[in-house]
Design a protein around this nucleic acid. Sequence first.
DNA 1: TATTGTTATACTCTATAACTATA
DNA 2: TATAGTTATAGAGTATAACAATA
Lengths: 176, 176
Amino acid sequence: MSDVIETRGSGKAPAAKGKRNAAPAEISLGTLPSHIGFALRLAQIAVFQDFHRAVADLDLRPGQYSVLLMLHTNPGIRASQVAEALGIKRTNFVPLLDGLEARDLVARDRLERDRRAFALFLTEDGAALLQRAEAAVARHEQRLALALGEAGKPALLELLARLTATARDTPSPHRE
Amino acid sequence: MSDVIETRGSGKAPAAKGKRNAAPAEISLGTLPSHIGFALRLAQIAVFQDFHRAVADLDLRPGQYSVLLMLHTNPGIRASQVAEALGIKRTNFVPLLDGLEARDLVARDRLERDRRAFALFLTEDGAALLQRAEAAVARHEQRLALALGEAGKPALLELLARLTATARDTPSPHRE
DNA sequence: TATTGTTATACTCTATAACTATA
DNA sequence: TATAGTTATAGAGTATAACAATA
């Protein structure tokens, strides 16, 4: 829990002779570790890296996995619905879908009753890949849950949900 | 805590007549909300947006604020030390520093005993801006702490630290 | 030879404006 | 007029390779 980081030479250099330097060998993060945003960033990076390792064989990033999951749970859903549910802009969702379609994991079916829109489905390959991904992601989640302890995971999800709700709803702080 | 999202017309459209559509009006996120990575992403986005609003007058992003804080806590520190401590690549730290220097918030002083490196300092303007930023960020943190409840913030920081440590240290899951 | 800072570059994620074809 | 999907584009954040000056 020390806020001090050793930066000199990655542990290879001898114990530093210049103690009166303008640039100290030991630096402090100060109050940074007590900032929620900073801690969130570090955790997010670490968790996403672990996710990446977990599904490395399948070549899936978190966003792609989320889309496959949504299409499995909501077959025939429209593209803009998936994008909105996942917090992705419609415009950025296009290349994401293109990539999955090019790999023949999802299919776009033009709707007859509204020929502007598509119904999205998993292909057989997509369903099969999702199944393997779900198993890998379950192991990834179990690994994290183990580190969080018995009541840790639900407690964390509850705290994160409060952050999401509060920070989202908070109006501009200086103009009320 | 419902996993169901209403996407049709953002609440403006009449109650949807086509109930037998291929694309249902109500879609489910399925198991996604129980994924730690997904919850982390939502919380991070919300918290960073709140941070942005909190320091909007000062035109500071989280990374820039972190650098100012580091230079205040560790005056004379070298650029690569700051970058490493914050988890930023040296190469990406250059334009970040350039921006702060262009605004006359930080100064690079060439070190005499090692003329490859710079000692970094806050300027007077930088110190003054940091002071205002710290006040704004403190209000931002208090707002979040209020939402998390009495023991919520330390509990959250503890859980996030466990995630950071575990996910970072975990070796590749399929090759042991 | 190794390190500090740097340039150039590329890839991902995100954001806005504007187009098309439909409604 | 409005909506679903799309294109083009631009801005951040992040990644690697390679260079000059210095150690």
